[in-house]
């Protein structure tokens, strides 16, 4: 190939058709396999991801657990043995028992605690879900625009992000609760989401900054693709991994923060049970009726942990630098 004189006679082989050995000469077993009819199925990204994720036992266990909790919480009305405000006067203050299906016992008024925890978990999960959506949308958009356009757009958006980061989330939430009173899960979720997006924005910005220098972005540009097409079709799909991982972590944080708020007496409207409020109510009698604080506490910790473990599993599975063992 380094001979400068035109002696490679390429004209003998018709350029329309690659030389018969040409296709086979590709040093790729796949191609060779194609030409003799037997296909070697290549593993797609998705298959690789699934394999890695399924091997992550903790994450798989968490996924199963969380799936059960989510389904139970969504269908709380049918799953729970009682409504959260049904009172069983006879069995007031009973410790966990199978008798009359008071698995988590009852409180001083005789309300079934398992049902109350389940409805509380529903509140926590719906807040977490709303937070994830709000954070996903705002964080991705801000980070993508900042990383894609750089320059003053980037500077302005990132300073705004810094501003939101320094808000003390709890204090802001308490002020909101004091101003507007306690709200529905939607309101708490949106406010929390408006406070928690900066981390995701920074991550997405970082990924975008490196992606925009990639050759395939240049290639798309050279094809005449516009900014929006490049961002949404080429760059965001390459950012899904970090986005999903960060969203799970944000969900876990949101569950804890919502519980903290409820524990402090803010958060969702009173008749709706929330895990944090159940713990607050159980606090006074925890010396004698331990289940009143332990049961919602366990529910809270297990849900937050499960979400975290899933996030871990996703991160490991999506990280191509982590080799399969």
């Amino acid at each position: 190939m380094t001979d400068p004189t035109p002696r490679h006679d390429t004209s003998t082989s018709d350029p329309e058709e690659p030389p018969p050995g040409g296709v086979l000469a590709e040093s790729d077993e796949q191609v060779a396999a194609y030409s003799d009819g037997s296909e070697i199925a290549a593993r797609s990204q998705w298959q690789l991801f699934r394999r890695k994720f399924f091997r992550h036992k903790l994450a798989m266990g968490s996924l199963v657990y969380l799936a059960i909790v989510v389904v139970a919480a969504i269908n709380a009305e049918t799953v729970a043995p009682y409504a959260y405000d049904d009172i069983n006067v006879v069995m007031r203050g009973t410790a966990p028992t199978f008798e009359e299906m008071h698995f988590f016992g009852t409180d001083q008024l005789g309300r079934d605690y398992f049902s109350r925890v389940l409805f509380g978990a529903r509140t926590s999960l719906s807040v977490a879900w709303i937070v994830a959506v709000v954070v996903g949308v705002i964080g991705t958009t801000v980070g993508a625009i900042a990383g894609f356009y750089r320059g003053w757009v980037d500077a302005a958006l990132m300073r705004m992000t810094d501003l939101v980061i320094i808000f003390p989330a709890l204090a802001v939430l308490l002020v909101f609760a004091a101003l507007f009173g306690q709200g529905r899960p939607t309101r708490i979720g949106i406010i929390l989401g408006l406070l928690l997006w900066p981390t995701l924005a920074r991550i997405v910005r970082g990924v975008f900054l490196s992606l925009r220098e990639k050759e395939f972005v240049q290639a798309a540009r050279a094809c005449g693709a516009g900014d929006l097409r490049i961002m949404f079709r080429h760059m965001i799909p390459n950012t899904i991994g970090p986005i999903v991982v960060n969203m799970t972590l944000v969900m876990a944080a949101a569950i804890i923060i919502e519980a903290t708020l409820a524990f402090l007496g803010f958060g969702v409207n009173p008749p709706t049970p929330a895990l944090g409020r159940l713990m607050d109510e159980g606090r006074s009698s925890m010396q004698t009726q331990w289940w009143l604080i332990v049961m919602p506490g366990m529910a809270l910790v297990s849900i937050a942990l499960a979400v975290n473990f899933i996030g871990d599993g996703l991160r490991d599975a999506l990280d191509p630098t982590q080799q399969e063992k």
Partner: peptide, 8 residues
């Protein structure tokens, strides 16, 4: 190797 988008 790098001028095709890996996810499409």
């Amino acid at each position: 190797m790098t001028s095709l988008n890996p996810v499409l």
